[in-house]
Simulated assay, not measured.
Amino acid sequence: MKLFLDSAKLDEIKYAIEKWGIEGVTSNPKHIKNSGRSMEYFMDEVKKIVESTEITVSVEVNPHLIKAEDMAEEAKKNCCYF
């Protein structure tokens, strides 16, 4: 079993890596918007945090959407940057 953190808060991600040894981070446009940061900022910063590790990062959207256009529209609606 792998332990993933579901968050867009960079301080939580750093803490979870250091204290819990998480193996991945997952987030979504709404979490990122609620963190007060842009998607671009989040992606740039989380990359810096995990780039020399084996940690997986994924940003999820509604799994019921199948067209890329619909996924992009959801991200635009729920996030401050896309």
Results as ranks from 00 to 15, higher is better:
residue 23 E to V: 05
residue 64 H to I: 05
residue 79 C to E: 03
residue 21 G to K: 05
residue 58 S to T: 13
residue 71 M to W: 06
residue 3 L to Y: 01
residue 62 N to G: 08
residue 41 Y to S: 04
residue 33 K to L: 14
residue 70 D to K: 12
residue 80 C to K: 13
residue 70 D to Y: 15
residue 74 E to C: 09
residue 42 F to C: 00
residue 62 N to K: 05
residue 35 S to I: 06
residue 77 K to W: 08
residue 50 V to H: 05
residue 56 T to E: 15
residue 70 D to C: 10
residue 14 K to D: 15
residue 76 K to E: 14
residue 27 S to L: 02
residue 72 A to T: 06
residue 37 R to V: 13
residue 77 K to L: 11
residue 51 E to R: 02
residue 32 I to K: 01
residue 11 D to Y: 10
residue 4 F to R: 01
residue 61 V to D: 04
residue 8 A to N: 03
residue 25 V to H: 01
residue 58 S to D: 08
residue 49 I to L: 04
residue 12 E to M: 11
residue 46 V to K: 00
residue 80 C to R: 09
residue 19 K to S: 13
residue 75 A to C: 07
residue 73 E to K: 12
residue 72 A to D: 08
residue 46 V to C: 06
residue 66 I to V: 09
residue 4 F to D: 04
residue 80 C to H: 08
residue 57 V to R: 00
residue 39 M to N: 02
residue 82 F to N: 10
residue 74 E to T: 04
residue 29 P to A: 07
residue 73 E to C: 04
residue 40 E to P: 01
residue 30 K to M: 11
residue 30 K to Y: 01
residue 17 I to V: 07
residue 58 S to I: 08
residue 13 I to Y: 00
residue 7 S to F: 03
residue 30 K to H: 10
residue 16 A to N: 10
residue 78 N to F: 07
residue 25 V to Y: 00
residue 28 N to Y: 01
residue 54 E to L: 10
residue 13 I to N: 06
residue 16 A to Q: 05
residue 67 K to E: 13
residue 4 F to C: 06
residue 75 A to V: 06
residue 59 V to L: 03
residue 19 K to Q: 15
residue 16 A to M: 04
residue 20 W to H: 11
residue 14 K to S: 13
residue 6 D to R: 05
residue 34 N to G: 11
residue 68 A to M: 10
residue 24 G to K: 02
residue 13 I to D: 02
residue 31 H to R: 11
residue 30 K to L: 13
residue 65 L to A: 08
residue 65 L to H: 13
residue 76 K to W: 02
residue 50 V to T: 05
residue 11 D to R: 06
residue 82 F to E: 12
residue 32 I to R: 00
residue 22 I to S: 04
residue 22 I to N: 02
residue 82 F to H: 08
residue 17 I to M: 09
residue 55 I to L: 04
residue 20 W to V: 06
residue 68 A to T: 06
residue 37 R to Y: 13
residue 37 R to L: 14
residue 33 K to M: 14
residue 55 I to H: 01
residue 41 Y to G: 00
residue 56 T to N: 14
residue 53 T to Y: 04
residue 10 L to G: 12
residue 41 Y to W: 14
residue 63 P to H: 08
residue 2 K to P: 12
residue 10 L to Y: 05
residue 72 A to G: 07
residue 70 D to I: 04
residue 58 S to W: 03
residue 33 K to S: 15
residue 38 S to W: 15
residue 42 F to E: 00
residue 80 C to Q: 07
residue 66 I to F: 11
residue 75 A to F: 02
residue 20 W to E: 07
residue 51 E to C: 07
residue 27 S to N: 10
residue 46 V to M: 03
residue 63 P to G: 03
residue 21 G to A: 07
residue 11 D to V: 10
residue 71 M to F: 08
residue 29 P to D: 11
residue 1 M to E: 14
residue 1 M to Y: 09
residue 82 F to S: 12
residue 31 H to V: 05
residue 58 S to F: 03
residue 24 G to V: 07
residue 3 L to P: 04
residue 20 W to F: 14
residue 9 K to G: 12
residue 33 K to I: 06
residue 52 S to N: 15
residue 74 E to D: 09
residue 67 K to D: 12
